[in-house]
């Protein structure tokens, strides 16, 4: 079961992790910057991602209206100068809810991907450095977790621990571990086979030092690209879980929850079901394009056929 693995919404046309051998770093900074500015998907993705992150940051100091304030007198108002995108069924301001929703998405995404990256990359590095039965054991454990898409693990967790933000973070995080594990092991193995690692071993460096000084810096770009793409998947998963009522709970605003609320009002206020979806699509599209762009910039040889 090497190569591309089944995941909830993994972009399957990505090159298989095992094939990803990074080039040696060392291009001039200015050249990279120029290429970055000319790279279409990197720039579009970067702008969209920045937009979502700014919205999340802005919501911590300012929203047009208090996002939690219920105002039944003004419920389901159409867009106006007072409420730019109108109000929801409880009279809350849609723009404010979207801004705070961005914060929820990013918070869940960052922590979940952080868990996946830290645990997955560490295990992957250990597997590549130690080989033998330790590698076998780690990889087989990774296989088990693949049997549980994020949704299934969230369902199990929600069934026993109750729904909530922590449940969705844990479920998405656990689901990310085997993905990072595989990609780290695959690319670390490729580095271990290189001459400069052999030279370091001949020079008497231990496995731990080689991992930290040679392997990790050389696979960092691959991990950054993967983390960007997984971030997009985490935002999708968070939205699905909170839409189903397993993730973020009210009154904490979240995009998925907003879609769920809007669904019962499709005939009265159809636009309510449009805004949160657009927000999710913007965030995911931005991160996907950014990931593609970063992949090209870090190593043009890995760029996809497009």
């Amino acid at each position: 079961m090497n190569g591309v693995q089944p995941t909830a919404a993994m972009p399957f046309d990505a090159p298989p992790p095992e094939a990803a051998v990074p080039s040696k770093p060392g291009r001039s900074g200015r050249g990279v910057l120029q290429r970055a500015l000319r790279h279409r998907s990197f720039m579009i993705g970067g702008v969209l991602t920045l937009l979502v992150i700014s919205a999340a940051l802005l919501s911590t100091i300012w929203t047009p209206w208090p996002a939690y304030e219920i105002d039944l007198a003004h419920k389901l108002n159409p867009p106006s100068a007072m409420h730019w995108l109108g109000t929801d069924v409880l009279g809350r301001d849609i723009v404010s809810l979207l801004l705070v929703g961005a914060r929820t998405s990013i918070l869940v995404g960052v922590i979940a991907v952080g868990i996946g990256l830290l645990a997955g990359a560490s295990l992957g590095l250990i597997a590549a450095a130690r080989k033998g039965w330790i590698e076998e054991l780690i990889m087989r454990l990774g296989d088990f977790t693949f049997a549980f898409p994020a949704l299934l693990s969230a369902i199990m967790l929600a069934a026993v621990a109750g729904a909530g933000m922590v449940t969705s973070i844990a479920a998405i995080g656990i689901f990310q571990i085997p993905i990072f594990l595989r990609i780290t092991r695959g690319s670390a193995n490729a580095i271990w086979a290189r001459e400069f690692v052999l030279a370091a071993r001949v020079a008497g460096k231990g496995k731990f030092r080689i991992t930290i000084e040679h392997v990790l810096p050389n696979i960092l770009s691959i991990l950054i690209v993967q983390a960007t793409i997984q971030f997009a998947l985490a935002i999708l998963a968070e939205a699905a879980l909170s839409y189903l009522g397993l993730g973020t709970q009210p009154p904490q605003p979240s995009w998925g929850r907003m879609l769920n609320d809007a669904q019962s009002l499709l005939f009265q206020s159809p636009l309510l079901a449009v805004y949160p979806g657009l927000a999710i699509a913007t965030a995911v599209l931005g991160l996907n394009l950014l990931g593609d762009g970063l992949r090209d910039l870090f190593d043009p040889r890995l760029s996809r056929e497009r």
Binding site: G277, I280, V284, N288
Partner: peptide, 14 residues
């Protein structure tokens, strides 16, 4: 690219 970025349940609602 848009197809990959759109959550299926939102597409369903649309």
């Amino acid at each position: 690219q848009f197809g990959i970025a759109i959550p299926n349940f939102w597409f369903a609602i649309l």
